[in-house]
Design a protein around this nucleic acid. Structure first.
Length: 868
RNA sequence: GCCUCGAUGGCGGAAUUGGUAGACGCGGCGGAUUCAAAAUCCGUUUCUGGUGACAGAGUGGGAGUUCGAUUCUCCCUCGAGGCACCA
């Protein structure tokens, strides 16, 4: 055994042995407990960042722990390889997205392998290969035929200068990021998944996901946004609008129907279009509403504006004429694109009505009374007894709902309805680097799905996009084709799919990644699925996780697999953050410096007070701790950390610095601390091993000090087992192992018993660390005299008898304040404990002149004496 | 704007069902070793007062429940993630 800890040698030796023995390659072995551990696969952006390292280390620790429990553990890896960055890189460097992507994959694969992950690399795939996306196209055609996919118009960000559709990310302050042009909303035809058909199941089956964080389930519930209410129709006729019809709205507060004083419709609503004819002022307002991007955050924060139309609709109960307004706060995409406004009881309507001088009619008696003077109070929104509502006066919410519903349905002007906030999923993208949508447009036959025997529709890979729309739309060799139904010349769809589609089913493909007869091999899929543990960033809490759940149900309904949900347990990791440093340039912009190039100065207490750039010694500003990013130049390159300290140190630091679901602040000195700890483990093991082999421990003949050491060993085993296996709190597991190391380093090594005890302690340390720092554990396990591989060793077993104590220390409080400690027999009765506590010197001192009112004894914990 | 989460020493963080606030690590300070340095080891380290024993305060701010609150309830402030075409 080498005297010095040398991560470079140890890590390459360990990785070579794992590869040679194919220890991480798994098969569908019957009758073995399986564990499918999946970390969200990376987008191949160029090189690994710390977020990846964190994600894959967490997954690896969990995988290796379960391996040591004897389970058949599948941990696969692949590449979410379609996406916009490849097109941007292509434009900047004049390289085809395909080549850029494949090069990145090759580089990042090498980086991942250097982390020593327990991956079955034989299952690797990239989503941009036809072998993968052909099955996505196949499913698309099936779902299209079933009607689960349909075509309708959707609104996109249109850049009028570049003549292209932009992603929300590419719209900055209402302008295109490259052209600087003011963005407009534009309607184009797109394909949609009917995810709303699954809204109810997506909602209710959340209840069964007991292994998901409550936070994520709450977010998904709110996103789906089920509301029970009523559809109400406001009739209009030839005389008032020029045609007969009904303005439909959805409301959750039909009890306030008598308080409606106006109607508000979205700018895109058909009534707005009718009203704008011959009204240039209104037309220009509608045009103004169409300016700016489609992102909800922008629409919701913009100033609330509206304009009256000359149109009126009838109140369904009273027949009263209600003015129709166009308002920018009404979303065409939610509900019916129109709302009935009840300014007395809805905050947004209240502000709007006050702004434009519209009438406000209170119809509910709330805790604020019968009137609703300015300013708005939350009480105005309460439910209560109806007032000013004619025959409905005096009714409460439930009976008003029933009574009003009854009248509406008699008049055929409304009915109860359930509404979801969730919208159908539009998947058409006017981009090149994505999975082609397998549809052929024929003048006679319409939209025809590409027949199975003509799949896949292959994306040409030698194309360099130029930022002016999709190059596919300009490639006749791609889009010219004949109709599969009638054989006439036809045009292939040139849009590609949202990249969320690929990441919605990759977890299932890993079960049979090379299967050529179908999307998945049902036997393999049912063997591994659902995923036992899924790990990824909290930023995916809604969209990706909801789409993956939806796809799983689609695949189930296609008969491809049996389970209802894809991910049994979910762990959402926090971000990796780091300090930022900058200087103000002359033009006022900030120039950011990487933490690696900055030196900090501290005051007497160690608090950081200033920072200087190492190269010129001049001060820089401290900008605060933020998510690692290119823009703030505060990223730390994982590769340089691995090169300097080794993968084990990097892994140990990341797992120790904070619990996985919290953000992790990068600290160079923390990394050094982790490295220092591994050196200490190595040194103690080296010292122990060079002193020669040990005898067997005689557990029946331990003195008190030896019992204390053995207790420390098994406390660490208990703590680490709970923390890693159940709670996923790797930081406290490591703290427990560190505490054990502190004990072992101080323990005597003279006698045979002492040395045997140290052997037991070191074996525990090595195995408890094995999931976290697998390379050093691999080396030390051999050094401690074991022939088998540490990865195949069994997780340490807790010996409860080692934890038993004869006496316990209890805390004594007087009036809740700590006043002393007492040592009592473990078996002492409540009465004995109370008597000892009452006789305690400090208790007597602090209760002098007071009367003891009560004594609370918490067994094994404390005694609180209440006196006054 | 809406939904969700978070806030504890100089710093990262720890604290079973409400029961000793600050485990473990980092940083700081003092010391040992060394010709010197690195490395390593030992001690100390929430704040305030006190030489000290000790006392008081303290978990973002404010109220409340309780013998007892970092933990439960209400209000507020600040920060983070998401908002459907970033992945």
């Amino acid at each position: 055994m080498q005297e010095q800890y040398s991560p470079r040698d140890i890590e390459s030796t360990a990785q070579t042995e794992w590869t040679r023995n194919e220890v991480f390659k798994v098969t569908e072995t019957p009758d073995q407990n399986t564990f499918y551990c999946l970390s969200m696969f990376p987008y191949p952006s160029g090189k690994l960042h710390m977020g990846h390292v964190r994600n894959y280390t967490i997954g690896d620790v969990i995988s290796r722990y379960h391996r040591m429990q004897g389970r058949n553990v599948l941990q696969p890896m692949g590449w979410d390889a379609f996406g916009m960055p490849a097109e941007n890189a292509a434009m900047n460097n004049n390289v085809a997205p395909a080549k850029w992507t494949y090069d990145n994959i090759d580089y990042m694969r090498t980086q991942l392998k250097s982390l020593g992950l327990a991956m079955d690399w034989s299952r690797e795939f990239a989503t941009c290969t036809p072998q993968y996306y052909r099955w996505e196209q196949w499913l698309f055609t099936r779902l299209f035929e079933k009607g689960v996919i349909y075509r309708k118009n959707g609104t996109v960000n249109w850049d009028p200068i570049d003549q292209t559709v932009l992603a929300n990310e590419q719209v900055i302050d209402g302008r295109g990021w490259r052209s600087g042009a003011l963005i407009e909303k534009r309607e184009i035809p797109m394909y949609y998944f009917r995810i709303t058909d699954y809204a109810e199941e997506l909602l209710t089956s959340l209840d069964g996901l007991t292994g998901w964080p409550e936070q994520v389930k709450t977010m998904q519930r709110n996103w789906i946004g089920k509301s029970v209410g009523m559809e109400v129709h406001f009739p209009y006729d030839q005389a008032s609008i020029g045609e007969n019809g009904k303005l439909k709205v959805f409301t959750t507060r039909p009890d306030t129907l008598m308080g409606v004083t106006y109607m508000a419709v979205a700018a895109e609503h058909p009534l707005a279009t009718i009203a704008a004819k011959g009204n240039p002022q209104l037309q220009s307002f509608i045009d103004e509403c169409k300016r700016g991007g489609v992102a909800e955050a922008d629409i919701a924060t913009q100033e609330k504006k509206g304009m009256p139309t000359s149109l009126f609709v009838e109140h369904p109960l009273t027949g009263e004429k209600l003015p129709v307004w166009v308002a920018n706060y009404v979303l065409m995409t939610y509900g019916e694109g129109a709302v009935m406004a009840v300014p007395a009881h809805d905050e947004r309507d209240f502000h709007f009505a006050n702004q434009y001088g519209l009438p406000i009619k209170p119809v509910v008696r709330t805790s604020a009374g019968d009137e609703t003077p300015e300013p708005w109070q939350d009480a105005y929104g309460e439910k209560g007894e109806l007032i000013n509502s004619e025959e409905f006066d005096g009714l409460d919410f439930a009976s008003a709902l029933e009574a009003i519903g009854e009248v509406l349905s008699q008049k055929d002007l409304g009915a109860p309805r359930t509404q979801y906030r969730l919208r159908d999923w539009g998947i058409s993208r006017q981009r090149y680097w994505g999975c082609p949508i397998p549809i052929i447009h024929c003048d006679t036959c319409g939209d025809v799905p590409v027949p199975e025997n003509q799949l896949p529709v292959i994306l040409p890979e030698d194309v360099v996009p130029d930022g002016n729309g999709s190059p596919l739309a300009r490639m006749p060799e791609f889009y010219e084709c004949s109709c599969p139904t009638c054989g006439a010349p036809a045009k292939r769809e040139t849009d590609t799919m949202d990249t969320f589609v690929e990441s919605s089913w990759y977890f299932a493909r890993y079960a049979s990644p090379h299967f050529e007869q179908g999307m998945v091999d049902p036997a393999a899929a049912n063997y591994w699925l659902p995923v036992d543990q899924y790990i990824g960033g909290i930023e995916h809490a809604i969209l990706h996780l909801l789409y993956a759940r939806f796809f799983h149900k689609l695949m189930r309904d296609e008969g491809l697999l049996d389970s209802d949900e894809p991910f049994k347990n979910l762990l959402t990791q926090g971000m990796v953050i780091a300090e930022t440093y900058y200087r103000l340039a002359e033009n006022g912009s900030k120039v950011w410096f990487n933490p690696a190039d900055v030196q900090v100065e501290r005051d007497a207490k160690g608090k950081i007070v200033a920072a200087r750039l190492a190269s010129d010694g001049q001060p820089v500003e401290i900008g605060g701790v933020e998510k690692m990013s290119k823009s703030k130049n505060n990223g730390v390159d994982p590769q340089s950390m691995i090169d300097q300290y080794g993968a084990d140190t990097c892994r140990l630091f990341m797992m120790f610095a904070s619990p996985p679901d919290m953000s992790l602040e990068w600290s160079d000195t923390g990394v050094e601390g982790a490295h220092r700890f591994l050196r200490r483990v190595w040194r103690l093991a080296h010292q122990h091993v060079t002193a020669g082999p040990t005898h067997k421990l005689d557990k029946t003949r331990l003195d008190d000090d030896q019992k204390a050491v053995r207790r420390a060993i098994h406390l660490a085993i208990r703590q680490a087992s709970q923390d890693i296996g159940q709670n996923h709190k790797f930081n406290t597991a490591i703290a427990a192992i560190m505490t054990l190391m502190n004990v072992l380093e101080k323990a005597p090594q003279a006698s045979n018993q002492d040395r045997a005890l140290l052997q037991e302690g070191l074996e525990a340390v090595v195995l408890l660390l094995a999931p976290i720092t697998p390379h050093i554990s691999h080396g030390l396990w051999h050094a401690l005299g074991h022939e088998d591989l540490a990865v195949q060793a069994q997780w340490p077993v807790l010996d409860e008898s080692a934890l038993v104590q004869d006496t316990l220390q209890l805390v004594i409080q007087v009036n809740g304040k700590l006043r002393g400690h007492i040592e009592v027999e473990a078996a002492a009765t409540r009465e004995t404990i109370e008597a000892i506590a009452r006789a305690n010197e400090n208790v007597l001192r602090f209760t002098e002149g007071l009367t003891i009112r009560k004594v609370i004894v918490v067994p094994g914990k404390l005694v609180n004496i209440v006196a006054n």
